[in-house]
Amino acid sequence: MSTHALTTIGFDADDTLWQNEQYYRLTEEHFRELLADFAEGPKISERLLEAEKRNLSHYGFGIKGFTLSMIETAIEITEGKVPTSVIAQILDTGRDLLSHPVETMPHVRETLEALSGNYLLVLITKGDLFDQERKLAQSGLGDFFDAVEIVSEKTAVTYRRVFSKVGDGPERAMMVGNSLKSDIVPAIAAGSYGVFVPHEMTWVLEHVDEPKDAPRFRKIAHLGELGSLLGALS
Protein backbone atom coordinates (compact mmCIF):
# COMPACT_ATOMS: atom_id res chain seq x y z
CA MET A 1 0.00 0.00 0.00
CA SER A 2 1.45 3.37 -1.01
CA THR A 3 1.88 6.25 1.40
CA HIS A 4 -1.07 7.94 -0.30
CA ALA A 5 -3.42 4.94 -0.22
CA LEU A 6 -6.85 5.29 1.30
CA THR A 7 -7.09 4.00 4.84
CA THR A 8 -10.32 5.55 6.12
CA ILE A 9 -13.88 5.70 4.77
CA GLY A 10 -16.56 7.89 6.27
CA PHE A 11 -20.24 7.17 5.76
CA ASP A 12 -23.22 9.45 6.14
CA ALA A 13 -26.19 7.79 7.85
CA ASP A 14 -29.60 9.23 6.89
CA ASP A 15 -30.59 8.33 3.31
CA THR A 16 -27.16 6.78 2.74
CA LEU A 17 -27.27 3.80 5.09
CA TRP A 18 -30.99 3.91 5.90
CA GLN A 19 -34.17 5.65 4.78
CA ASN A 20 -34.96 8.95 6.50
CA GLU A 21 -36.38 11.71 4.31
CA GLN A 22 -39.43 9.67 3.35
CA TYR A 23 -40.65 9.83 6.95
CA TYR A 24 -40.27 13.61 7.01
CA ARG A 25 -42.27 13.85 3.77
CA LEU A 26 -45.10 11.77 5.23
CA THR A 27 -45.08 13.90 8.39
CA GLU A 28 -45.23 17.09 6.32
CA GLU A 29 -48.23 15.72 4.41
CA HIS A 30 -50.00 15.09 7.71
CA PHE A 31 -49.05 18.59 8.89
CA ARG A 32 -50.61 20.08 5.76
CA GLU A 33 -53.81 18.16 6.46
CA LEU A 34 -53.93 19.51 10.01
CA LEU A 35 -53.81 23.10 8.72
CA ALA A 36 -55.96 22.59 5.61
CA ASP A 37 -58.68 24.90 6.99
CA PHE A 38 -56.22 27.78 7.21
CA ALA A 39 -54.08 27.63 4.04
CA GLU A 40 -53.39 25.70 0.83
CA GLY A 41 -50.90 22.83 1.02
CA PRO A 42 -48.10 24.40 -1.06
CA LYS A 43 -48.28 27.59 1.01
CA ILE A 44 -47.99 25.59 4.23
CA SER A 45 -44.92 23.75 2.90
CA GLU A 46 -43.35 27.02 1.78
CA ARG A 47 -43.82 28.59 5.20
CA LEU A 48 -42.52 25.47 6.93
CA LEU A 49 -39.35 25.48 4.84
CA GLU A 50 -38.81 29.16 5.67
CA ALA A 51 -39.15 28.34 9.37
CA GLU A 52 -36.70 25.45 9.07
CA LYS A 53 -34.13 27.72 7.41
CA ARG A 54 -34.52 30.33 10.16
CA ASN A 55 -34.27 27.77 12.92
CA LEU A 56 -31.26 25.74 11.77
CA SER A 57 -28.89 28.07 13.61
CA HIS A 58 -30.99 27.76 16.78
CA TYR A 59 -32.04 24.11 16.87
CA GLY A 60 -29.69 22.40 14.44
CA PHE A 61 -30.68 19.46 12.26
CA GLY A 62 -33.12 16.76 13.26
CA ILE A 63 -36.58 15.91 14.43
CA LYS A 64 -36.78 18.27 17.40
CA GLY A 65 -36.00 21.30 15.27
CA PHE A 66 -38.45 20.10 12.61
CA THR A 67 -41.21 19.70 15.20
CA LEU A 68 -40.61 23.16 16.64
CA SER A 69 -40.65 24.59 13.11
CA MET A 70 -44.02 22.94 12.47
CA ILE A 71 -45.43 24.49 15.65
CA GLU A 72 -44.03 27.90 14.73
CA THR A 73 -45.49 27.62 11.23
CA ALA A 74 -48.90 26.63 12.60
CA ILE A 75 -48.93 29.70 14.87
CA GLU A 76 -47.94 31.99 11.98
CA ILE A 77 -50.42 30.61 9.45
CA THR A 78 -53.33 30.74 11.86
CA GLU A 79 -52.25 34.15 13.22
CA GLY A 80 -52.03 32.71 16.69
CA LYS A 81 -55.39 30.94 16.55
CA VAL A 82 -54.15 27.39 16.11
CA PRO A 83 -56.21 25.06 18.34
CA THR A 84 -54.32 23.40 21.15
CA SER A 85 -55.57 20.06 19.80
CA VAL A 86 -53.59 20.72 16.60
CA ILE A 87 -50.46 21.56 18.59
CA ALA A 88 -50.90 18.29 20.45
CA GLN A 89 -51.18 16.40 17.16
CA ILE A 90 -48.03 18.11 15.83
CA LEU A 91 -46.16 16.98 18.94
CA ASP A 92 -47.48 13.46 18.40
CA THR A 93 -46.19 13.42 14.82
CA GLY A 94 -42.78 14.52 16.09
CA ARG A 95 -42.73 11.68 18.59
CA ASP A 96 -43.77 9.28 15.85
CA LEU A 97 -40.73 10.36 13.82
CA LEU A 98 -38.54 9.44 16.76
CA SER A 99 -39.85 5.89 16.72
CA HIS A 100 -40.13 5.03 13.04
CA PRO A 101 -38.58 1.71 11.96
CA VAL A 102 -35.08 1.61 10.50
CA GLU A 103 -35.05 0.49 6.87
CA THR A 104 -31.52 0.03 5.55
CA MET A 105 -30.72 0.95 1.96
CA PRO A 106 -29.85 -1.70 -0.65
CA HIS A 107 -26.31 -3.17 -0.60
CA VAL A 108 -25.43 -1.54 2.74
CA ARG A 109 -24.72 -4.56 4.92
CA GLU A 110 -22.71 -6.54 2.37
CA THR A 111 -20.69 -3.45 1.44
CA LEU A 112 -19.79 -2.61 5.04
CA GLU A 113 -19.00 -6.26 5.74
CA ALA A 114 -16.62 -6.40 2.77
CA LEU A 115 -14.84 -3.18 3.75
CA SER A 116 -14.65 -3.81 7.50
CA GLY A 117 -11.14 -4.86 8.50
CA ASN A 118 -9.63 -3.53 5.29
CA TYR A 119 -10.38 0.13 6.05
CA LEU A 120 -11.12 2.19 9.11
CA LEU A 121 -14.87 2.85 8.87
CA VAL A 122 -16.37 5.88 10.58
CA LEU A 123 -20.01 6.95 10.70
CA ILE A 124 -20.29 10.73 10.39
CA THR A 125 -23.82 12.03 10.83
CA LYS A 126 -25.67 15.09 12.03
CA GLY A 127 -29.03 15.37 13.75
CA ASP A 128 -30.55 14.55 17.12
CA LEU A 129 -28.11 12.59 19.26
CA PHE A 130 -30.67 10.18 20.74
CA ASP A 131 -32.35 9.58 17.38
CA GLN A 132 -29.11 8.84 15.55
CA GLU A 133 -27.98 6.50 18.32
CA ARG A 134 -31.35 4.74 18.21
CA LYS A 135 -31.24 4.25 14.46
CA LEU A 136 -27.67 2.97 14.52
CA ALA A 137 -28.55 0.46 17.24
CA GLN A 138 -31.68 -0.74 15.44
CA SER A 139 -29.91 -0.96 12.09
CA GLY A 140 -27.57 -3.65 13.37
CA LEU A 141 -24.69 -1.95 11.56
CA GLY A 142 -22.84 -0.58 14.57
CA ASP A 143 -20.24 -3.34 14.78
CA PHE A 144 -18.89 -2.47 11.33
CA PHE A 145 -17.73 0.99 12.43
CA ASP A 146 -14.47 1.80 14.15
CA ALA A 147 -15.82 5.18 15.25
CA VAL A 148 -19.08 7.13 15.32
CA GLU A 149 -19.18 10.93 15.09
CA ILE A 150 -22.53 12.70 15.60
CA VAL A 151 -21.85 16.33 14.73
CA SER A 152 -23.83 19.58 14.67
CA GLU A 153 -22.61 20.50 11.17
CA LYS A 154 -20.52 18.98 8.42
CA THR A 155 -17.81 21.33 7.19
CA ALA A 156 -14.27 20.96 5.84
CA VAL A 157 -13.07 21.61 9.39
CA THR A 158 -15.26 18.76 10.64
CA TYR A 159 -13.80 16.30 8.15
CA ARG A 160 -10.22 17.37 8.80
CA ARG A 161 -10.77 16.87 12.53
CA VAL A 162 -12.52 13.51 12.26
CA PHE A 163 -10.24 11.97 9.65
CA SER A 164 -7.13 13.16 11.52
CA LYS A 165 -8.42 11.75 14.80
CA VAL A 166 -9.74 8.43 13.48
CA GLY A 167 -7.48 7.82 10.49
CA ASP A 168 -4.37 9.12 8.76
CA GLY A 169 -5.70 12.53 7.78
CA PRO A 170 -8.20 13.72 5.18
CA GLU A 171 -5.90 13.09 2.20
CA ARG A 172 -6.08 9.35 2.88
CA ALA A 173 -9.81 9.35 3.53
CA MET A 174 -13.06 9.14 1.60
CA MET A 175 -16.54 10.40 2.51
CA VAL A 176 -19.59 8.61 1.12
CA GLY A 177 -23.05 10.16 1.25
CA ASN A 178 -26.21 11.38 -0.46
CA SER A 179 -25.83 15.09 0.30
CA LEU A 180 -23.60 17.11 -1.99
CA LYS A 181 -23.76 20.05 0.40
CA SER A 182 -22.93 18.19 3.61
CA ASP A 183 -21.11 15.02 2.61
CA ILE A 184 -19.30 15.68 -0.65
CA VAL A 185 -18.31 19.32 -1.20
CA PRO A 186 -16.83 19.94 2.29
CA ALA A 187 -15.04 16.57 2.32
CA ILE A 188 -13.37 17.38 -0.98
CA ALA A 189 -12.48 20.84 0.37
CA ALA A 190 -10.80 19.07 3.29
CA GLY A 191 -8.66 17.05 0.87
CA SER A 192 -10.64 13.80 0.89
CA TYR A 193 -12.42 11.88 -1.82
CA GLY A 194 -16.15 12.57 -1.96
CA VAL A 195 -18.37 9.78 -3.27
CA PHE A 196 -21.89 10.93 -4.09
CA VAL A 197 -24.68 8.34 -3.80
CA PRO A 198 -27.86 10.11 -4.97
CA HIS A 199 -31.14 9.57 -3.14
CA GLU A 200 -34.44 10.47 -4.75
CA MET A 201 -35.70 12.29 -1.67
CA THR A 202 -32.72 14.36 -0.53
CA TRP A 203 -33.88 17.42 1.47
CA VAL A 204 -34.06 20.58 -0.65
CA LEU A 205 -31.72 22.46 1.71
CA GLU A 206 -28.99 19.92 0.95
CA HIS A 207 -28.97 20.61 -2.80
CA VAL A 208 -25.92 22.18 -4.48
CA ASP A 209 -24.26 21.61 -7.85
CA GLU A 210 -22.04 18.59 -8.36
CA PRO A 211 -18.31 19.50 -8.15
CA LYS A 212 -17.66 17.70 -11.43
CA ASP A 213 -14.29 19.36 -12.01
CA ALA A 214 -12.91 18.27 -8.64
CA PRO A 215 -10.32 15.49 -9.15
CA ARG A 216 -11.51 13.64 -6.04
CA PHE A 217 -15.24 13.71 -6.87
CA ARG A 218 -16.91 10.41 -7.70
CA LYS A 219 -20.52 9.37 -8.22
CA ILE A 220 -22.07 5.91 -7.93
CA ALA A 221 -25.65 4.71 -8.35
CA HIS A 222 -25.72 2.73 -5.12
CA LEU A 223 -23.42 1.47 -2.39
CA GLY A 224 -23.00 -1.84 -4.16
CA GLU A 225 -20.69 -0.04 -6.61
CA LEU A 226 -18.33 1.24 -3.92
CA GLY A 227 -16.10 -1.85 -3.88
CA SER A 228 -15.39 -1.56 -7.62
CA LEU A 229 -14.68 2.15 -7.23
CA LEU A 230 -12.18 1.47 -4.46
CA GLY A 231 -10.53 -1.21 -6.60
CA ALA A 232 -10.09 1.30 -9.43
CA LEU A 233 -8.46 3.79 -7.08
CA SER A 234 -5.97 1.35 -5.58
Rank of each mutant, 00 (worst) to 15 (best):
T73R: 06
K126H: 00
F66G: 00
Q132V: 09
V86D: 03
T158R: 06
V102A: 08
E153P: 01
M70A: 03
T67K: 14
G62W: 04
K126D: 00
T111Q: 10
A114I: 10
F145H: 10
D146Y: 03
S99A: 14
Q89Y: 07
L112V: 03
D96M: 14
S99H: 13
L112F: 03
V148T: 11
R109M: 15
T158F: 12
T84Q: 12
E76T: 01
I90A: 07
I150T: 11
E72M: 10
I71S: 11
F61H: 02
I87W: 07
L136V: 09
T84G: 07
V108A: 03
T93Y: 13
A74C: 08
E133H: 06
F144T: 02
G94R: 08
I63S: 04
T155Y: 13
A137F: 13
I124N: 07
G140S: 12
V108K: 03
S69P: 12
E113I: 01
G62S: 04
A137P: 11
I124F: 00
L68K: 15
G65Q: 02
D92R: 14
I150N: 01
I87D: 09
M70E: 14
L129A: 11
F66R: 05
L91C: 11
A114V: 10
L68S: 11
V157D: 14
D96A: 14
G62I: 01
Q89T: 11
T93P: 01
T78E: 09
E72W: 05
T67G: 08
A147M: 10
T155P: 05
P106Y: 04
L97E: 12
A137N: 13
G65I: 04
M105C: 11
L141F: 05
G117Y: 02
G127P: 00
R109W: 15
T111G: 10
Y159Q: 12
D146P: 04
S85L: 10
A74K: 06
Y159W: 07
T155D: 04
K81L: 10
T155M: 04
Q132H: 04
A114K: 14
P83S: 08
V151N: 03
I77N: 11
Y119M: 02
F144E: 03
L129H: 12
E79Y: 02
E79N: 11
